[in-house]
């Protein structure tokens, strides 16, 4: 008790359990309950192919939600992820169609995502505008740029070589899933093991106190938005690789799913709180539910209803288990 450092250093397992927070355990239980319900109702739900399907269907949202989680932890919100994805998708797609080498096109798409995030971040951190309004504005702006750039038409005929990159598989898992798993691991390390992670939690938790303690406020916020933009671009690459085309209207309402996954996973829109593990579980919960309802031939109207109820239920359970204040 008096020497905590020694205790934890000699017991890495306890340390790991300690890291896996109560809140994440709650999200995991939620996922298990949902899987059990669908497993009972839908024959073949637990088939390996379907489970992999669920992961694949969740991967794009999980990718976006990881960036969203970092932004939300910093006390902000990024409503512009869908249009950011669309803009980076149409630019890289038209480069690919024009015969630009794959790596260059992919890097350009990342650059577009980073630039979109940079603009959001600068407007929030340096100009001091409210994140909700800034990204509401860039939501329309980036979408308009994608539409203007393409004249509203999809960019068709992506080279087969490019498509095979994102449609391959590794260790029996679709490459998209592996990529997002790696991103999640990096995000977890960032949040738990780097000064930047501590800074995000501090800036979102109490910006004034963080400032007085010498935390680089602006740099931290801008980095969060840039990561969100970058992950939106990555999600776009995964999607156009799968579809073989890039539409300027791609990514419509992605921001809402991403926020939902983060919130189910325990991120607080007040800032200062959020979990990478929780967000991934949240994204899989949403993915599993859609997959199960589709297999049950439930109308999409009811799928929307189920999504809404899941979010509300998660928040209610949060509230009840944590009590007041």
């Amino acid at each position: 008790m008096t020497d905590i450092s020694e205790n934890t250093a000699t017991r890495p397992k306890a340390d790991f359990l300690h890291r896996f927070s109560m809140r994440d355990a709650g999200t995991l239980i939620g996922l298990i309950v949902i899987l059990a319900v669908f497993g009972a109702l839908v024959p073949g739900f637990f088939a390996e192919r379907n489970l992999i399907n669920i992961l694949q269907q969740s991967s794009i949202n999980a990718c976006l939600a990881l960036g969203m989680t970092l932004v939300i932890i910093s006390g902000g919100i990024d409503l512009s992820v869908g249009p950011t994805a669309a803009l980076s998708a149409v630019i890289s797609a038209s480069m690919l169609v024009a015969g630009v080498p794959f790596p260059l096109a992919i890097v350009s798409s990342f650059a577009v995502g980073l630039a979109c995030g940079l603009l959001n971040g600068v407007l929030v951190a340096h100009v001091g505008l409210q994140p909700f309004i800034v990204t509401l504005g860039t939501l329309s702006t980036y979408r308009a740029l994608a539409l203007i750039y393409t004249g509203g038409n999809p960019v068709l005929g992506l080279p087969a070589g490019f498509r095979s990159i994102f449609n391959g598989s590794l260790f029996g898992l679709p490459l998209a899933v592996v990529i997002v798993a790696v991103v999640a691991l990096v995000a977890w390390i960032i949040l738990k093991k780097t000064p930047f992670g501590e800074y995000l939690l501090a800036v979102g938790g109490n910006e004034e106190a963080a400032y007085i303690a010498g935390v680089p406020i602006a740099r931290t916020k801008i980095a969060a938005y840039m990561i969100s933009g970058l992950l939106a671009a990555l999600a776009a690459q995964i999607l156009i690789g799968r579809l073989g085309a890039a539409e300027p209207i791609l990514g419509n309402l992605w921001e809402l799913d991403a926020i939902a996954a983060a919130a189910i996973g325990g991120a607080s829109l007040m800032g200062g709180k959020g979990s990478v593990v929780g967000t991934i579980l949240g994204a899989v919960i949403l993915g599993a539910m859609r997959n199960g309802l589709t297999l049950m031939n439930v109308q999409s109207f009811y799928q929307l209803l189920a999504t809404g109820l899941i979010i509300l239920a998660a928040m209610l359970i949060d509230r009840v288990t944590r009590g007041r204040g």
């Binding site: 390390i189 093991k193 780097t194 000064p195 501590e198 800074y199 939690l201 501090a202 938790g205 109490n206 004034e208 106190a209 963080a210 007085i212 303690a213 010498g214 935390v215 200062g272 709180k273």
Partner: peptide, 28 residues
Amino acid sequence: REGIVPLRSITSNMALASMGVFAPRGVI
């Protein structure tokens, strides 16, 4: 308002001003 980050641990609050010292190679 200006001192603590309420949700974070004592350790995190303490380390906030000297994170660089605890992460010489980027990882804490």
